[in-house]
Design a protein around this nucleic acid. Structure first.
Length: 253
DNA sequence: CCAGACGTTGTT
DNA sequence: GTCTGG
DNA sequence: CCAGACGTTGTT
DNA sequence: GTCTGG
């Protein structure tokens, strides 16, 4: 779960909003981010500076993919067990990151007839180009609210000796909004918890796992998305992200 | 001791 | 690297 | 996550 | 059915 998402802000706007160095400042907005793509994650540099850094979605442990090995990319990690799994143990202690998104997709229904849903946190709208907070004056086209998913990362060095940052998104039990759609949801952190996730030292990792709980459903909304979301190469435009029906699935509805 | 796995998801 | 299974 | 492929041989 | 690619 959580295998596609939206990031409807350019990298430089995002870096400004997150108070981070824009190492991934050239990243373009996307309504169909998919596994194996290079996407921006917020990390803490050695000097304590926040950096928005490009990373490949699909964590590859440092020891993997040595000659003769091939492990599929790990795009999600279960919050309940992440600290104990050999593939994730190092990353959760030393490689915690935040994954900025403006929405994510979940599929429901039987195989072959899946319905994608667009899900996001409700909040104050942001102008995508300027980063200016629009409040309730925003038009629907301008309504973009970035929020942060808990992620873990690890540097994997290619056979050509090129270091790459790779990451995985943590999942948790679904809240009341997501449960009818799917049995898992990404771990969403509000601003305060996000800071703790980034800045807590490795020794205190265990305490942080309590933060990876279902986000309040009352602060979220969902609606049906276009089936074109399933086609990874399709770079959806803003107006194409929903199914044209415009129905909103409200929490507790 | 060495060899081999190391993950999530969904679906049946 | 580190854990599990034999 | 979904979509789409799913193979070998020999030759350049 | 299962693996690979995006």
């Amino acid at each position: 779960m959580c295998g596609r998402y939206q990031l409807a802000l350019p990298g430089r706007t995002l870096a400004n909003l997150l108070d981070a160095e824009p190492a991934a400042g050239n990243v373009q907005p996307t309504w169909n981010a998919s596994p194996t793509q290079l996407l921006p994650v917020l990390a803490l540099a050695a000097n304590g500076q926040r950096v928005l850094q490009p990373a490949e979605w699909g964590l590859v442990p440092a020891w993997a993919r040595r000659p003769g090995q091939s492990l599929r990319p790990l795009i999600n990690a279960r919050a309940e067990t992440v600290a104990d799994k050999p593939a994730f143990r190092t990353a959760v202690r030393r490689g915690r990151v935040l994954v900025p998104v403006t929405g994510f997709y979940e599929w429901s229904g039987p195989k072959g007839a899946r319905t994608p849903h667009s899900i996001r946190v409700r909040g104050e709208a942001i102008h995508p180009e300027t980063g200016v907070r629009l409040g309730h004056d925003a038009s629907p086209e301008e309504e973009v609210e970035p929020f942060l998913l808990a992620g873990i990362s690890e540097v994997w060095t290619t056979p050509d000796n090129v270091p790459e940052l790779t990451f995985s998104i943590l999942t948790t039990a679904p809240n009341e909004l997501c449960a009818p759609i799917h049995d898992r949801m990404p771990a969403i952190l509000d601003r305060e918890d996000a800071e703790a996730w980034l800045e807590t030292p490795a020794e205190a990792t265990e305490l942080l796992l309590e933060l990876l709980r279902p986000f309040p459903a009352a602060r979220m909304e969902a609606w049906p998305a276009t089936r074109a979301v399933g086609d990874a190469p399709v770079a959806l435009e803003r107006d194409e992200r929903d199914d044209g029906g415009g129905q909103l699935t409200l929490p507790f509805g």
